[in-house]
Design a protein around this nucleic acid. Structure first.
Length: 639
RNA sequence: GCCGGUGUAGCUCAAUUGGUAGAGCAACUGACUUGUAAUCAGUAGGUCGCGGGUUCGAGUCCCAUCACCGGCUCCA
């Protein structure tokens, strides 16, 4: 372990481990050190954001490539933003301005309403501040003085933040030029280091994230130590726009959203193929895993929803309807129906685990502002299942479900994060029940060797849960799969089974989904594949393109041949040039194009073009069909 | 729901200080019969999101409303 001597600003010398991070360093020399840490020099030439604490001590502390380094860098960027805004719009109050993944934001309370055009002006001012090469200096004040300091400047939000800190706190501030902000750090040493900066958007955000509070104006931006990195990042955002499932959904005629039904998507023929293929695959996997399938009514009497508790806890989000003078509700969840199915027969412990699946369409009145393409809708399909079991079966069954979900995600090459949420403050059930439930869930994850994040107190009031978050091409994560233990519904519905002892017992119930919402899953798939679905999912798998009208007969002969083998195939018989037809098929992202002209008719062959690999040349018809069929069979390769 | 922005032909977009709506692609018709990402010509297509108002006159200004976009909140 090589140690390095660090000379602090006050002249004292400290020995630290080489390569130590600024945060570790701050911890080591509590409080004081962070102050010194910003007084360094940057070796801008060789390594961006490599700091030296003092002129004689070469300790690399922070790099932009590290998460912490990027964080400090973006944090300074947000201070520059706030400084520019206060210069241009005096009287603007500051709320908070943290670094986030890929950028930063700052929340403002201003009389002035920021419009997109303002961003350019603010950005120009920020560039000025960067050029001014302002040093960031840290200073600390006892809590009461800190309060006076911010109150004098009329920074009410900062005062509120300080008020929430303990009485004996020492409050740190960072100063750059005329601008000072309450801030824990860390920061880079000078505004000059922020070489490339770009403001992206302006949005509303509630103070402290609470909708009861005032709505502030949030400005988002991003920054990099090199112009090239910024360019690359902006290009990535452009690429992501091209993949947007709403755009591709329209271009590929997969689905549509209309004013007549906000949040209620239309699935067009192409999208329906994808949906049906996904369900086909789902049924294969679930059959193999021992699930049965049921379907429960979309509309049921209010009494059922009172029994389940939804009428009291979820009414705001439920669509209701009157039938014969009685209240009915459209189901927002499948569980109550599932409970009724269980209760239709006398159940035995020998039936367990009893896995009852339901691909159920649910309706929820989501806030209009929350709607987003297929990702957030008001009617969606859950690939639900309720599993009834004995307490001692929990762990193994959770493992089964997690394994199944993993298999499904692997199918599409998805990466995902797992989160385990435990007992919240307000909860139902005994300590022993929760203890068993939580250790079973945790044990299952650990035995499977899955990395997971623990969200303590984040579970549902009726039980702990495991969530699966898919990571999309933009790095955003979407909650899809979930496994929830339900300790409330069995009781509310008075569900029983006959145990080995001949007595009635309450079953354990888990509620789980793999896709989550099929609509959302399709949205994610569209972006994941950029519309280029693998052959088994592609709406049109083979497009036959006759070169001239006289080749149409042969084209249709090929079509019949392939169709009879279960291949989705179309003929483009328009009197257009072959280049035009190829372009169209290519834009529609059809996996295979077959060009047939005089040569192919004569030789009874085909000229194959692949969407991804381009021209493949002449091929034998039977061999090509076999190839396509093998790709279609990928749907089931897990079996 | 909240904050901000947007809304013109099926799609992507134009329309100088308010003066009476235009292009490309798509569609349709015709010609061309085509060899691996856009053949040419013509035709048709809009109560400028919907509803009020100001004005001699509104796509352009104001109000209201709906939807969408970026976020917040919430969530599969």
């Amino acid at each position: 372990m090589s140690m390095v001597k660090v000379t602090l600003k006050d002249g004292s010398v400290k020995e630290v481990e080489k390569g130590i991070s600024i945060y570790e360093l701050a911890k080591e020399i509590s409080g004081r050190l962070a102050k010194e840490a910003v007084v360094g020099e940057v070796d801008g030439e060789t390594v961006d954001l490599t700091y030296t604490l003092d002129h004689d001590a070469d300790v690399s502390i922070l790099k932009f490539d590290d998460e912490e380094g990027a964080h400090a860098f973006r944090h300074t960027s947000s201070h520059i933003l706030a400084q520019a805004v206060q210069r241009l719009f005096p009287g603007t109050k500051l709320a908070i301005g943290p670094a986030i993944d890929n950028g930063f934001y700052y929340d403002f309370d201003s009389e002035h309403v920021f419009v997109p055009e303002d961003l350019e002006k603010i950005e120009a001012e920020m560039k000025k501040i960067i050029k001014e090469d302002l040093k960031l200096e840290r200073f600390e004040l006892p809590r009461s003085e800190a309060l006076d300091f911010v109150s004098e400047k009329g920074e009410d939000y900062k005062a509120e933040l300080i008020n929430d800190l303990p009485e004996d706190s020492i409050i740190s501030f960072y100063k750059q030029g005329e601008f000072t902000d309450l801030c824990a750090g860390c920061h880079v040493t000078s505004t000059k280091q922020v070489k490339a900066i770009k403001l992206l958007s302006v949005a509303g955000a509630y103070w402290r994230g609470d909708e009861k509070n005032k709505m502030l104006q949030r400005i988002y931006g991003t920054s990099f130590p090199k112009a090239k990195l910024l360019e690359e990042h902006l290009e990535m955002l452009e690429e992501a726009k091209k993949r947007d499932h709403r755009k591709l959904g329209k271009e590929l005629k997969l689905f549509a959203l209309r004013e007549e039904g906000p949040g209620f998507p239309f699935f067009l023929p192409n999208g329906m193929v994808v949906k049906n293929e996904l369900m086909h695959y789902w049924r294969e996997v679930h059959n193999a895993a021992g699930y049965v399938e049921v379907e429960t009514p979309l509309i049921m009497n209010r009494k059922l929803w009172e029994t389940s508790g939804h009428w009291y806890h979820y009414k705001e989000n439920m669509y209701t309807v009157q039938i014969d003078d009685e209240d009915y509700a459209i189901k927002p969840m499948n569980c109550p129906g599932g409970m009724l199915v269980y209760d239709m027969e006398m159940r035995s412990y020998r039936d367990f685990p009893l896995r009852i699946g339901e691909v159920g369409r649910v309706h929820r009145h989501e806030l209009s502002g929350a709607l987003h393409g297929l990702m957030r809708v008001r009617a969606f399909t859950q690939d639900d299942a309720h599993i009834f079991m004995l307490p001692e079966q929990i762990k193994d069954e959770i493992k089964n479900v997690a394994t199944l979900i993993d298999e499904v995600y692997q199918k599409f090459g998805f990466k995902y994060n797992v989160e385990l949420s435990t007992r919240p403050e307000k909860s139902m059930g005994s300590d022993e029940e929760w203890e068993l439930a939580e250790t079973s869930l945790q044990g299952a994850l650990e035995e499977l060797g899955l990395d997971y994040k623990l969200n303590e107190g984040d579970g549902a009031f009726y039980g702990p849960k495991i969530d699966f978050h898919l990571i999309d091409c933009l790095g955003r994560s979407w909650q899809c799969g979930t496994i929830q233990l339900d300790m409330q519904l069995p009781q509310r519905f008075d569900l029983n089974y006959i145990g080995a002892d001949g007595e009635k017992h309450r079953p354990i119930v888990i509620h789980r989904v793999a896709y989550g919402s099929i609509e959302r899953f399709i949205g994610i798939l569209i972006e994941h594949y950029a519309g280029k679905f693998p052959t088994w999912l592609a709406p049109v798998q083979v497009k036959i393109l006759p070169i001239a009208d006289r080749h149409a007969d042969y084209a249709y002969e090929l079509k019949r041949m392939m169709q009879s083998k279960g291949i989705r195939v179309e003929v483009d018989e328009r009197s257009e040039k072959i280049g035009y037809k190829i372009r169209e098929a290519q834009l529609q992202k059809n996996p295979y194009m077959l060009i047939v002209g005089d040569k192919e008719v004569e030789e009874k062959s085909i000229s194959v073009r692949s969407r991804d690999k381009g021209e493949l040349g002449a091929q034998d018809v039977a061999a090509f069909i076999d190839q396509v069929i093998s790709e279609i069979k990928e749907r089931a390769n897990s079996l």
